[in-house]
Design a protein around this nucleic acid. Sequence first.
DNA 1: CTGAAAGCGCTTACAG
DNA 2: CTGAAAGCGCTTACAG
Lengths: 342, 342
Amino acid sequence: MTVTIKDVAKKAGVSPSTVSRVLSNHPRISKETSQKVKEIVEELGYHSNIMARGLISNKTYTLGMVLPRPAEELFQNHFFSESIRGITTQASRQGYDVLMTAGSSEQDEVEAVTRLVKGRRVDGIILLQSRKNDPIISFLQKEAFPFILIGHYGSEDILCVDNDNEQASYDATVHLISQGHERIGFVSGPTNLTVSEDRLKGYQKALSEHGLRMEPDWIVEGEFLQESGYRAMAFFMNLPERPTALVVIDDIVTFGVLRGLTELGYKVPDDLSLVSFNNIALSELSSPPLSSVDIGIYQLGYMASQLLIRHIDEDKPQQLRTIVPHKLIVRESSVNLRRNWS
Amino acid sequence: MTVTIKDVAKKAGVSPSTVSRVLSNHPRISKETSQKVKEIVEELGYHSNIMARGLISNKTYTLGMVLPRPAEELFQNHFFSESIRGITTQASRQGYDVLMTAGSSEQDEVEAVTRLVKGRRVDGIILLQSRKNDPIISFLQKEAFPFILIGHYGSEDILCVDNDNEQASYDATVHLISQGHERIGFVSGPTNLTVSEDRLKGYQKALSEHGLRMEPDWIVEGEFLQESGYRAMAFFMNLPERPTALVVIDDIVTFGVLRGLTELGYKVPDDLSLVSFNNIALSELSSPPLSSVDIGIYQLGYMASQLLIRHIDEDKPQQLRTIVPHKLIVRESSVNLRRNWS
DNA sequence: CTGAAAGCGCTTACAG
DNA sequence: CTGAAAGCGCTTACAG
């Protein structure tokens, strides 16, 4: 039923070995033979069986990926789809496919990865999130299996693509300072993600460099959910002395802040100025449009594939950490009109 | 380096055949042997090589999926990530992984699918979009390869999960009629998608059943982009006689409409009432919150995996078409307050 | 330049 | 209940 290499060989009047060589562009093969075999291949619609080939070469031309768990993922619909699009597009271009698994718990995830690695189902793994103390990373390190992390893992020597999140957050904060703000708050994400930590650092650095007050009450931790923004907003607006501007970890969270403010009759940016991260499509459409740091999510995914594949092929990566540039997009939510127009 | 079945066999003092039988829970195997082998498997961290196994059984325990092309995909970030989450979660639960490829053109896509099918790389394929005259579908039908379509393909006999989009659109339109509207417009999506067609039909049916006017000018086609909504809005508001309410193909498009209206100083729902589809997270957060038909995207994905796997295992699907129920969520954008409170 | 043979890691009738 | 043998579809030294 399925066309095998034998069928092609028979029809072409050569041996299977020869067909195989033609298909892999072996140098020492005569032009006529090559041509003839290729014709037959076309005619019969032959495609080599990936299993059989992989069994020998120990290559699958597949990159593995673990889908974030619902609990953690909710937030990042945008990050998720954009990075996957980047990963898959680039992988396809280089002749790789992308395999996804999901786990419903951390242990599930580790098991899924183990299965992929030990079962030789993929040639490398892409991790979409950098969590602290990630057992998946320990496992992959132990196995010396090729992988790349979007983000970073402390300062360990692993292959990764990342933004300079500290700098990005610093830039966002300095922008607010330049708009005349002196009381600036920070709405963070889950503390077990390195990105939360990095952005907090950048924020603090900006404040301290400009001699501004750092108030513990002005830093709130949450998740990548609108609810978190809503709650943070409620908290801030009830403080006796409240910030006049916020740096927010994610656009989605900012939508929550915005909604709360609107309900209470506050105005953005007059009563509270906002800058956040990701620059999702809707941030431009909200009213007012949101200032946001574009972190190049598609490019993060794209680079992840590219670097991982290079690592798989060449073994020794020249450079472990690659930084994707960010860009602050200033929109109404953080522009103090009165100052600008004076 | 890698642990094979032979290593396990040697250490357990049995033959590879026996190890294989233990692993596949063959009935006639002694308890002691089984136990012993399992211990060794655990101890050595043995995982069976998927390639080798697949080569024999002709099963990959993998479902294939073609990532929509950027041009078409932009719109559907939400649909995309939610359905993939549904697909992958359910697949994982049933012991399957999901393989993604991307193609940058229609031909690329067909080639990618051909490679997956002919190379025996997957056991079945999930199609995320139902386009008219899709060469991928023709190919899969010709090959008699298991696949499932999210949506439907005319009235052809193929396995699919779908919403009753005609009914959903009918419901949305009737809701507007019940709010007292008599001039209702429709903003559609790309005409090559069956979903656009189905929803247009439902809208027309509702109007005709209620004896309302059907004005060609009140029907606009666009894409799943905010820009489309913006343009549609501009068009409608410039008509000498304009609709007082719109049924819009997708929440994202509605955001474009909303933005335009806000810019021009119109109010929703007073000047124009809006209902759309998908019920994405942000539709609740916009101002005003959007009425939207929840079509159960996660469930569409989830069912797609489940039904496809069943089809793969059992061969004969009992039922070809499965309908995921929809639900109209009414929010401010379509509620005529004056009428309701009178 | 090309073919016969061995083997990748596993499964499964065939014997016993 | 278990082992030896054949084979899944391919690749790749080894000869020639």
